[in-house]
């Protein structure tokens, strides 16, 4: 794998890492398997791309995406808690609804940002080459979100969110309305996912309605790879592990794609297979370790 490909993988790992932090929030903190993300990632991309094409400041466009993702997540939370729809199904319903909504938002299946200013252009004014600028910017943003999440999960409200995922009966008997916590928690998660989608769109210069396909799988794979490699432990460790897991995951994918065995090499269409194998490996690693290296 070339140096350039590695940098590309790290960059992808960081920008998708924000999405992974969102997935961590639902999957691990709230214990809520949330497939909304496959729709909210392109939603964030769409909202920010359309906003920019209307002349909105690229940074402001990121926050519009954040808000849109929050609303999408709240819908899933509402369907689950107030209407009593199974979490998985509730999130699938929001996801497919978002497919139509995203096309409405973009008035078509995609929006190009060609010739438009993005957050990266603003950042590159300092004279840095594009691939360095994006890594620096994404590092700053993703680390800020790590800090925010660690702080948030130690607040009174954040603690009741952790408790809601761990033991809903207990936290209800301590006076917390778990419905509110779930709605806001899934909202916050999807806000991060949409924010990530907005950055991705600005980075690659386009938003596309299909760019969200497989987001949840990549997100789960990253969370699980991170946990396997860096351990679970407390909140700080888990959040950092999720971000690093994202970088590891993208690196592993890049490695696999650059691999050549004689005449054989992987193609991008093999990505799903590689991801599946990677998750299986990460999930079984503790068993294999216990079995063969006691």
């Amino acid at each position: 794998m070339s140096w350039y490909a590695l940098l590309g993988a790290v960059e992808q790992g960081l920008v998708y890492g924000i999405m992974v932090l969102g997935v961590y929030l639902t999957f691990r903190v709230l214990n809520f398997p949330d497939l909304t993300v496959d729709g909210s990632l392109p939603l964030g991309a769409a909202v920010s791309a359309v906003a920019i094409s209307f002349g909105v400041n690229p940074f402001a466009a990121l926050f519009l995406a954040l808000g849109a993702g929050f609303l999408a997540g709240m819908v899933t939370g509402f369907l689950n808690t107030k209407l009593g729809i199974l979490h998985l199904l509730a999130s699938i319903l929001t996801m497919i609804a978002l497919y139509s909504i995203n096309i409405r938002v973009m008035s078509g299946p995609n929006v190009s940002l060609l010739g438009r200013n993005t957050v990266l252009d603003l950042f590159m004014r300092f004279g840095l080459p594009g691939y360095v600028a994006s890594i620096i910017l994404f590092t700053i943003i993703s680390l800020s979100i790590v800090v925010f999440l660690v702080w948030f999960l130690h607040t009174e409200f954040g603690q009741s969110m952790l408790a809601t995922g761990d033991n809903p009966r207990m936290i209800t008997s301590q006076g917390v309305n778990t419905h509110t916590v779930i709605i806001l928690g899934v909202g916050l998660s999807n806000a991060l996912v949409a924010f990530s989608g907005a950055l991705i769109a600005q980075n690659q210069g386009a938003a596309d309605v299909n760019m969200g396909v497989g987001t949840i799988v990549a997100g789960l794979a990253s969370v699980i790879v991170g946990e396997t490699v860096f351990g679970r432990g407390g909140v700080l460790r888990a959040v950092v592990a999720a971000l690093l897991g994202s970088i590891l995951y993208r690196t592993a994918i890049a490695l696999a794609l650059s691999m050549k065995l004689g005449a054989f090499s992987f193609t991008p269409s093999d990505l799903n297979l590689i991801t599946a194998l990677l998750v299986v490996l990460a999930l079984t690693a503790p068993r294999i370790k216990a079995r063969f290296f006691p």
């Binding site: 948030f152 130690h154 607040t155 009174e156 409200f157 954040g158 603690q159 009741s160 952790l162 408790a163 761990d166 033991n167 207990m170 936290i171 301590q174 006076g175 917390v176």
Partner: peptide, 25 residues
């Protein structure tokens, strides 16, 4: 809550019936 510490559990119980905001847990 099994995944949380003893003091975190106690802090959750201490706020029973009160608003939970963004102060330290």
């Amino acid at each position: 809550c099994a995944s949380m510490s003893i003091e975190q559990n106690l802090a959750l119980a201490l706020r029973r019936g009160r608003r939970r905001g963004l102060g330290r847990g």
